[in-house]
């Protein structure tokens, strides 16, 4: 399992209820279910991934976070996970609001557009950045609302969303993000992982 999922998993208590939004092939859900006795639900847009999840015996609902989160009642989960998909929504602000409606806590991970490789790409090449974490060309990318770690950090501050944990990931190294090191973390981290609540 990739490092990002290990970090997310460590943030989740045993025997809880978790909704994984954009759960892909269900790797994280399967791990949480088997190792932490978590009652998981997945929401996934790709039919192929839905089938992968069904084969793993996971409870998977085909759907899209922008259209289908309304089906879940208020605070019906302990955690909701949104891994590297916030940037693909038309209205990320509304999605975050909805995540914090259906769940007490949300774990949101962000591919960092402030990462130095991304900045260098745009600065030197003058074209839209293509990196390991952001592999698509501008014309075919699903990512329409890219943000940096600092953008998300400021967003939470402005929206009065409480950040319980803020973790930066670079290669396999993790470190915590705070007010003092935010500019540095925004430069040298590929991924930001945030545990947030209202």
């Amino acid at each position: 399992m990739k490092k990002e999922f290990q970090i997310i998993s460590d943030l989740i208590d045993n025997n809880t209820r978790v909704l994984d939004v954009g759960c892909g092939d269900g790797t994280l859900m399967k791990f949480l279910k088997d190792e932490k006795n978590v009652d998981t639900r997945g929401l996934e847009i790709s039919k192929e991934n839905v089938q992968n999840c069904i084969s793993k015996g996971l409870s998977i609902i085909e759907g899209n976070a922008e259209k289908d989160l309304h089906q879940f009642p208020d605070l019906s989960f302990d955690y909701v996970v949104l891994s590297q998909t916030l940037q693909a929504f038309y209205d990320p602000e509304k999605v975050i609001e909805d995540l914090l409606r259906v769940s007490k806590k949300a774990i949101v991970t962000i591919p960092n557009f402030g990462y130095w490789k991304v900045r260098i790409h745009l600065l030197l090449k003058g074209t839209m950045p293509v990196t390991d974490a952001l592999p698509n060309e501008w014309y075919s990318t699903p990512n329409i609302h890219m943000c940096s770690i600092k953008d998300f950090y400021n967003f939470c501050f402005r929206k009065k969303i409480y950040m319980t944990k803020s973790i930066a990931l670079n290669k396999e190294q993790t470190s915590s993000i705070n007010k003092r090191n935010i500019n540095l973390k925004n430069l040298n981290s590929e991924l930001g992982i945030f545990l947030i609540k209202k």
């Binding site: 039919k47 839905v50 069904i54 409870s59 998977i60 609902i61 085909e62 759907g63 009642p73």
Partner: peptide, 10 residues
């Protein structure tokens, strides 16, 4: 989902 039941959909 409202009743908290275990459900999938395609």
């Amino acid at each position: 989902n409202s009743s908290g039941a275990d459900v999938g959909f395609i």
